[in-house]
């Protein structure tokens, strides 16, 4: 009997080793390297020097970092709830029995499926001050008399990146939530209808409580993803004006680009920690780590 187990363990080692090696070399080593690097002064053309927590002390005094931190948290706080609520509405639409439902689902998927850099470019043109679609619609409909300076003011740029992100990632939330809707037993909804509950009552008393775990999963995924936002904003607003829409990832990237790997690593480590703490919070709130696979 133990012969078989030995053979199994040996086979298992062979089967999982490519995965382990790749994840070790290209994720774990870089992550540990970043952690280590965050405690060094590691600037191109200078000698590497151990400085322990100096980078982090510097961070807290750095107004650029504080601005990036504030923007990123505010961005997540505003865009994620909109995405979940809108995603819920889309999920319910995709769950109704209508002709061409598959086509509707595919159309909703498309904004999620295309590269964020491409959507960033499309939205950059939409927000263009002199000939973009947004200002054309706004002035034609008389919402504003003057064109709006979307990407040239802090508030305008913030609204612009939130709208573009909502457009890009609501489909993801909708797909996750749709899976939750489909898992609700039909008998339960029929029973509610027999009991003459109206639509809102069914939604609040039956659907929402059953959906709680999956809503938390969607929130968790969107929050972590929102915290590390980079490509869409990098392309759409370039982090501007004056750093008003620079995310934490973008801020760290600028240091990496400038050859300051120690400081950039410290910024990334802070991002790790925020993401980690929030995940722990969500997991506790959802208590869905019950160990079933």
């Amino acid at each position: 009997m133990s012969d078989i187990t030995d053979k199994e363990i040996k086979a298992a080692c062979v089967f999982i080793s490519p995965l382990i090696v790749l994840i070790f070399l290209f994720i774990l080593v870089p992550v540990l390297g970043t952690l280590l690097n965050s405690m060094f002064q590691d600037v191109a053309f200078l000698d590497k020097q151990f400085v322990f927590l100096r980078n982090f002390r510097q961070l807290f005094a750095d107004s650029g970092f504080r601005q990036a931190l504030k923007f990123t948290l505010l961005f997540v706080l505003v865009s994620v709830p909109i995405e979940i609520v809108l995603g819920m509405a889309f999920a319910m639409l995709m769950n109704t029995h209508i002709p061409l439902r598959g086509l509707l689902r595919a159309c909703v998927l498309i904004p999620w499926a295309i590269p964020a850099a491409v959507s960033g470019r499309i939205w950059e043109l939409i927000y263009n001050y002199s000939y973009g679609l947004a200002n054309f619609i706004f002035t034609e409909l008389g919402i504003t008399t003057e064109p709006v300076n979307w990407l040239g003011t802090s508030l305008g740029a913030f609204i612009a990146v939130v709208i573009a992100d909502v457009w890009k990632t609501t489909p993801f939330a909708a797909i996750i939530l749709l899976a939750g809707l489909q898992a609700i037993p039909v008998e339960l909804l029929n029973q509610a209808r027999v009991d003459r509950a109206n639509f809102l009552q069914v939604f609040y008393k039956v659907v929402l409580p059953l959906m709680k775990p999956i809503i938390i999963v969607a929130l968790l995924f969107r929050t972590i993803d929102g915290l590390r936002v980079f490509d869409l904003i990098y392309v759409l607003s370039g982090g501007g004006p004056g750093g008003a829409t620079t995310s934490i990832s973008h801020y760290a990237y600028k240091y990496f680009l400038g050859g300051d790997f120690g400081y950039g690593s410290a910024v990334s480590v802070i991002l790790f920690m925020i993401a980690f703490l929030l995940s722990v919070f969500y997991v506790k709130a959802g208590r869905f780590m019950t160990g079933q696979v």
């Binding site: 290209f26 870089p30 992550v31 972590i224 980079f230 990496f256 991002l271």
Partner: peptide, 13 residues
């Protein structure tokens, strides 16, 4: 592992 933000890998990579 999939929770690590990409920016934490790219400098070292």
């Amino acid at each position: 592992v999939s929770m690590f933000p990409q920016i934490g890998l790219v400098g070292y990579l």
